[in-house]
Design a protein around this nucleic acid. Sequence first.
DNA 1: ACCTGAACACCGTTCAAGT
DNA 2: ACCTGAACACCGTTCAAGT
Lengths: 194, 194
Amino acid sequence: MRYHRTDIVERAVGVLDQYGLADLSMRRIASELGLQPSALYHHFGSKQELLAAVADEVLERGARPDAPDTAWDDRVVALSRELRDAMLAYRDGAELVATVHAFGLGVRSPAAPLASAIEAAGFDEAFARTAAMTVLHFVFGHVSDEQTHRQANTAGAIDADPLGRADTASFDLGLSLILEGIRHRAAPVRTARH
Amino acid sequence: MRYHRTDIVERAVGVLDQYGLADLSMRRIASELGLQPSALYHHFGSKQELLAAVADEVLERGARPDAPDTAWDDRVVALSRELRDAMLAYRDGAELVATVHAFGLGVRSPAAPLASAIEAAGFDEAFARTAAMTVLHFVFGHVSDEQTHRQANTAGAIDADPLGRADTASFDLGLSLILEGIRHRAAPVRTARH
DNA sequence: ACCTGAACACCGTTCAAGT
DNA sequence: ACCTGAACACCGTTCAAGT
């Protein structure tokens, strides 16, 4: 059987969702496709490169059209929720996307649309970049926590909040704190001196 | 040679700092101590357990005394900077501590002192927990970014900002956004003194 | 109590060779 | 262009056996 990049990425997304990031190995992807592990290196230079393509695919499947003529803070909320939903849709999605983002790989940068939404509010580029990174770190961290705890609950017996309503509430609350900080364009923290 | 838990943790911290988290393997720690890999399992039930002990050690070495009678927001800033400095002191410190924290392992929880500082301002426990997690996600994410980029720069040729002054500025700015969001939250039950 | 030695079931990656 | 087969240098973990 002859495969293309997209076939391999598609299969890798399946392996991710079924077995988790820890078991998303080159050897397992290859064997699921009926290939030798070495065959994958004809399509991707390294495992990192394949993971970046998988992360891009996860984000692309969760992408929704941006609404540039709505208020900047509504756009930030919409972009953050879109990102959260995209990562929640696949097992270990948050950890995968965060890892790929940390290494600077991947075509889709979730930071760019956040930053431009904040810039559209009239903030300068440097501030918008820092604010966008703050939002992004929050989203990655929160959703990673959600997924590891959801995993722990599924492994155990009962799940008090299977739909994650409490998670959604604390996600919105944490996000609103950062937005409020941006709105009030916080005074820089003082360095304590004695 | 006969070792105790503490000897192994100490050596593991050294391996972490010298080779990074990816090369912090049971086999490498063992060989650095002149032991068989299996010997480590007499002291630790698993690699995860050993990593938790290493993360605790890193945090403990960076611990500074808390100042409970200062303003709540100054305490949050001080705790966040302490955490940042502790993780920056060892290669991949942030990724290690964040991973251990995500799995709910480790004795030292950096979230607890943050939450109690926020509670001391009069906010209820549930809000304080969410606000503390928001701060924590930001700190983990920001410092992880700092360390991966610092790593990339050290591998390359030049480093424009070797002391990370730009990183410190954006750390303080991001942190101040979250603090401003907490401040503008209505209805603290008690009013903070000072 | 603490460690050795050997084994089991895995990894990512390279490379000559096949079609 | 796409893949096989074999190899290299690794992993975490278990377990009987030694002192």
